[in-house]
Design a protein around this nucleic acid. Sequence first.
DNA 1: TCTGGGGTCCTAGGACCC
DNA 2: TCTGGGGTCCTAGGACCC
Length: 385
Amino acid sequence: MVFLQLPKVTKKTQQREGQFLYHVDLDCFFAAVEIREDPELVGKPVAVGGNRETRRGVVTSCNYIARKFGLHAGMPINQAIDFCPDLICTGRHHSLYRDVSDNIMSILSSYTEQFRVASIDEAYLNLTSEVENDYGGDPIPLAKKIKKEIYEAEQINCSIGIGSNTTIAKIATGVAKPDGIKYVLPDKIIDFLTPLSVRKMSGIGPKTTESLKRKHGIKTIGQIIAVGSEVEMIRKFGGLGKFFYRIISGKGRTNIEPINTYGAKSISNGRTFWGQMNDGERVTAEKILPKLIDSVHDRLVKKNFKYKTVTLAVRLQDNFQNINRSRSFLAANDDKERIKTTVYEILDEINHAHNNAPIRKVAVRVSNFTKQDPLQKTITEFFQS
DNA sequence: TCTGGGGTCCTAGGACCC
DNA sequence: TCTGGGGTCCTAGGACCC
């Protein structure tokens, strides 16, 4: 069974042509910040994440020099060092990345109110009226201006994809990388998509790519386009067909709104600890859980959220099986004891059900937050600032 | 040479209500 | 004794994203 995240079609989804949607993506963001901070790293293969000594962990971000050796985000550091023996693994400075990102996002938000932060290194902007009124309908000069302003402020390169909706803009950014600009005209969408691998579509990951190849012999978006009508696509691919048709026909969304009004939907902290020694003693789930509960609870309280659901996620060592068990409560609150009791109860259950199978990873998650009254939220933020 | 951490969204079955 | 249809909530698992 293939699962797929379908973009939500809301009543606000517009399908106007001739819109100018920009997708801005900072190039190898974490690695770029590290290199900016340490000129010694310039010209060398650099990866953020992982530990060279223990050879544990994975690459979180790496520069293009490292990518030439076949490295990519998510690659185990052990393998990365084999591929690229001179690889430099730098420390992670998350608060610095956060600061740099905030500055850049604030620059971007000054261009338009139709702006959405998609992640720490990505944003969407609808600059239709700016392009039409100030640039005679040519989106490239404005993209160059944005790139220049970001570079001058933070010495970080970015790539910009422009299209008539967010989906096309995002795919275009992938083609523009690194440090480039790619504009896809509305009547050139088919030409643009045809040669690309299906994997270029956001939402199509390794599993779906593999299943399309196996079941239908399909590797490129062009082969999907050749299927023809929406009806044919749905007949052949089911729910996936609808998704494909929407992308190919250019009927993506053009409105830019915050993903959700209430902030995070869940807060979690987890640790992989198998094989790691702590003062000569093996770390166990029971020992690590209090720390995870503390940090989840701290973040919950800082955000002034109240949860209704507690989840314990466990990954078994032997087969990498993921087990998620959750409990929901009628009343929402931020009680730490309730998290603790629930988590240990669930751990007992899992241990019992799986005959105390060795555990590789545990994660504590709270979710199902109550929506805050906007006025109350304003008041709370006022007192917190 | 085994595979991090923090998230979101989708699916599917079952309970329960009207 | 058998049996609707619609809706919501809960739980579990999985794909995918950065």
